[in-house]
Design a protein around this nucleic acid. Structure first.
Lengths: 284, 284
DNA sequence: CGTTAAGTTGTAATTTTACTACATATAATG
DNA sequence: CATTATATGTAGTAAAATTACAACTTAACG
């Protein structure tokens, strides 16, 4: 957790002199990280050991360690903190908070990923005869995006956001097919049923969902993405971004596995779009 | 500038021993910031002053100062900003790189945003009789996602990924309607045409696109998102994520503007989904 | 090929910085 | 008001970083 926030929140746990130190640091943290314990003590009108004790109270090993933490908090303003949007926030605040918490969630998501599973999934995708991406609600747009990416690879790829179409498609799947099911909660009934149908036809079912969910249990392979979601908003936000980034990773893995020639092919696909676009200004 | 990058780039300016130090630090920067100059010297098999000289060569005041810079580089989770995926990268590397460059792009996007414009857009959206989200290709899934979000707000909201449907929809638009057009490049012909049609019917046209683009010129209001895109991949990746996060911001602004009562309404929408889902395990 | 100069690295001493143990002061409780 | 607990500071100690200088290595030149 961000140590600057910690300082302002722990105010009550501090003693009188420690609070003086806290004030000085919060007032000008940039100066604090470039000061020695002696100068900081003088600035706060307390003794050096008091500063040291202050550091310890914040669960750091000592003053130098504290400075490191502080420096990290200051690195990019105060980035990657999972602060929640509040009723009183203006446009500036909520924009900042949403961007920052999205970034924080991506970091958490990245750390929760199992690289071996990613590698296996890329393996399966490259070997697939046909790839299907299915999701519902917010995850539908993720599946939609996956379609857009994999479509460029010139592989048979399918996407539906209609349950019945999804079902029918899975009924017709076979051993060489890969079905990717996307769901943040992993508790959407119809998706779980679809997993069962696909598995019944010996298709490989890959789940992009949270682990230990009903959907996860029905999949051949699960890429678990554990992302903290701000439930106050009643909308999926961070989970969706993490899923999309994962799609990027899988698509990238796919192209790398296919080699250089394949990449040239991608360029051709992109170039085809040129006709539908206005030219770029020459002098830009 | 990020000191980790600086280290890897300055390799040529280092002496033999200094390079040893650089290697050790790059191999495990997390350990480096928690070591003293003595232990770091031992790890690199050089003397303490050499480590000190190494720090000075990187324009830091000394070892402690160097550690602060290093800590800051490691803090934001994007130590190697904007590095491109390479042919030789394994799953571990490209996963890391994609997540990190996505985070870096979000940071850039956030800084390029004009808060006043955001505020105006939220204004317009809350006052709209009908909201339409249109995009093509990769931006179609962004529009799709926007539909999913704004649909929950119980406002008339429209989404099509079919050009003709988009056109027809715009032909029927009127003064109270808001049309949101999403395009990274802003040079997709049919979207520009749609903007003109909508404007011709006095609808408010909001563009989520790059500034100074043909599309931007046709819009009543433009939220410009300047995101660096890794063109090596021939796929839109970061731009899409930034657009989605912007949608989150707009949706959040919308709900905040509508007040607490409205938020309760959102909760009801979410609760309705419960029937379609398996219960959460009680003991979790 | 040897001599010299420039640059590199290490050793040891010095200085600075942080920490510990203990003493004193202040506040809290019965 | 006495007693205990808590908070703060002083002085000494340990550790860390820096400096000055010496030894070594490499490159340059006659």
């Amino acid at each position: 957790m961000n140590i600057l926030e910690k300082i302002s929140q722990s105010q009550s746990a501090f003693s009188k002199s420690e609070r003086k130190v806290a004030e000085v640091i919060l007032a000008n943290p940039q100066t604090a990280i470039h000061s020695s314990i002696a100068t900081l003590a003088k600035m706060s009108n307390v003794s050096e050991p008091t500063v040291n004790r202050f550091c310890r109270r914040l669960d750091t090993k000592g003053f130098p360690d504290f400075k490191l933490h502080l420096a990290q908090s200051l690195a990019n303003g105060t980035p990657y903190v999972n602060r929640h949007v509040e009723e009183s926030d203006g446009p500036e605040e909520y924009t900042k908070k949403i961007f920052e918490s999205t970034m924080a969630s991506l970091e958490v998501a990245r750390q929760s990923l199992d690289i071996n599973v990613i590698n296996r999934v890329v393996d399966l995708l490259t070997q697939a005869q046909k790839i299907s991406f299915f999701g519902l609600g917010a995850s539908a747009s993720v599946a939609h995006d996956a379609l857009n990416k994999f479509f460029r690879f010139n592989v048979p790829v399918i996407y539906f956001d209609d349950i019945l179409m999804q079902r029918m498609s899975c009924m017709n799947s076979s051993e060489e097919d890969v079905v990717v099911l996307i769901s943040h909660t992993g508790r959407t009934k119809s998706l779980v049923e679809i997993a069962q149908i696909a598995r019944g036809n010996d298709a490989t079912v890959i789940g992009i969902t949270s682990k230990d969910s009903p959907l996860a249990r029905e999949c051949s392979l699960v890429v678990s993405l554990d992302v903290p979601e701000d439930t106050d908003m009643y909308m999926p936000m961070a989970s969706r971004i993490a899923q999309l980034t994962l799609i990027d990773v899988l698509a990238t893995g796919f192209t790398l596995r296919r080699g250089t020639k394949f990449r040239e092919n991608l360029k051709r696909v992109k170039d085809t779009l040129r006709e539908s676009r206005y030219d770029k200004k020459p002098a830009t």
